[in-house]
């Protein structure tokens, strides 16, 4: 750690973290916009029409990345919550707090686009299938965590209570992921997995993965932007403007 020349522990202070996050947002935003534009181009102009589903399958390019982000962000949120509980570190709780709304948004998007895909291919907007039901529970978990936090006035208690709820709920993520294997679901199995070759055309997979990375970078940018707002709300210090330097912050502290 000493040989990098960077004191990483500096960023365990919300003030330093606020500055660091602000510097990182533009980079992640630019990469995210670029990846999403490339992904949309490949998805709509390079990937061929599906033989069985026609062009309805193109919903996959927003549905699968949103569904992956909904599960991935939950795990990341639970990890920050766990670090927060273990080390009693305020920035970790703030990160968990900042991730929840974006996770909820992607969960809603996965369910919404899924129903847009279900109607033309299954003939139903919604079915009580294991995959759909467990994903709906994930949305309720996100909402529950956000509401629990906002219902407790004492910030330290709110941090710990919502962190415990987030950690307990992480059990649902493998259930969502493996639901298509464990139960006989109407929802199709994984098109792309780490252990097997993809069951889709190469350009389709490329478009989906590029969109996934784009959504990932978007999530990082948005989370960092929100964590800055959270820090500013919770710390209520002067000199949060762009021109604030570490020296100003140290002085204010």
């Amino acid at each position: 750690m000493s040989n990098t020349g960077i004191n990483w522990f500096k960023y365990s202070s919300p003030q330093a973290f606020h500055l660091l996050a602000g510097r990182m947002i533009p980079w992640f935003s630019v990469v995210s916009i670029g990846l999403i534009l490339i992904g949309l181009y490949i998805g709509f102009f390079v990937a061929p029409t599906d033989a069985t589903q026609g062009d309805a399958y193109r919903i996959i390019f927003v549905h699968v990345p949103a569904a992956w982000m909904s599960m991935f962000l939950y795990v990341i949120m639970a990890i920050w919550a766990g670090i927060g509980l273990g080390l009693n570190a305020r920035p970790s709780f703030m990160m968990a707090q900042a991730i929840a709304p974006t996770g909820a948004m992607f969960t809603f998007l996965a369910l919404f686009t899924g129903s847009m895909w279900g109607k033309p291919t299954w003939g139903a907007w919604w079915v009580w299938d294991a995959r759909l039901t467990s994903e709906l529970i994930l949305l309720f978990q996100y909402i529950g965590i956000i509401l629990l936090r906002s219902s407790i006035d004492d910030l330290r208690r709110a941090d710990r209570a919502s962190a415990v709820l987030a950690l307990v709920g992480v059990v649902n993520v493998p259930i969502i992921y493996f639901s298509v294997k464990w139960w006989n679901t109407l929802h199709q199995g994984a098109s792309v997995s780490i252990t097997a070759a993809p069951t889709m055309a190469g350009t389709m997979v490329t478009a989906m993965l590029v969109m996934m990375f784009g959504f990932w970078m978007y999530s990082i940018a948005v989370t960092l932007a929100r964590v800055r707002c959270v820090i500013a709300d919770r710390e209520r210090l002067p000199s949060w403007g762009k021109q604030a330097s570490m020296a100003d912050v140290a002085e204010a502290r």
């Binding site: 029409t49 062009d55 193109r58 919903i59 927003v62 998007l109 847009m116 109607k119 033309p120 978007y218």
Partner: peptide
């Protein structure tokens, strides 16, 4: 290919949610 309503509603919802956020 006849699925325009479903495809564009999906992508429109994504743009609205992410842009709104």
């Amino acid at each position: 290919g006849g699925y325009g309503l479903y495809v564009w509603t999906s992508f429109g919802a994504a743009a609205l949610c992410m842009g709104g956020e």
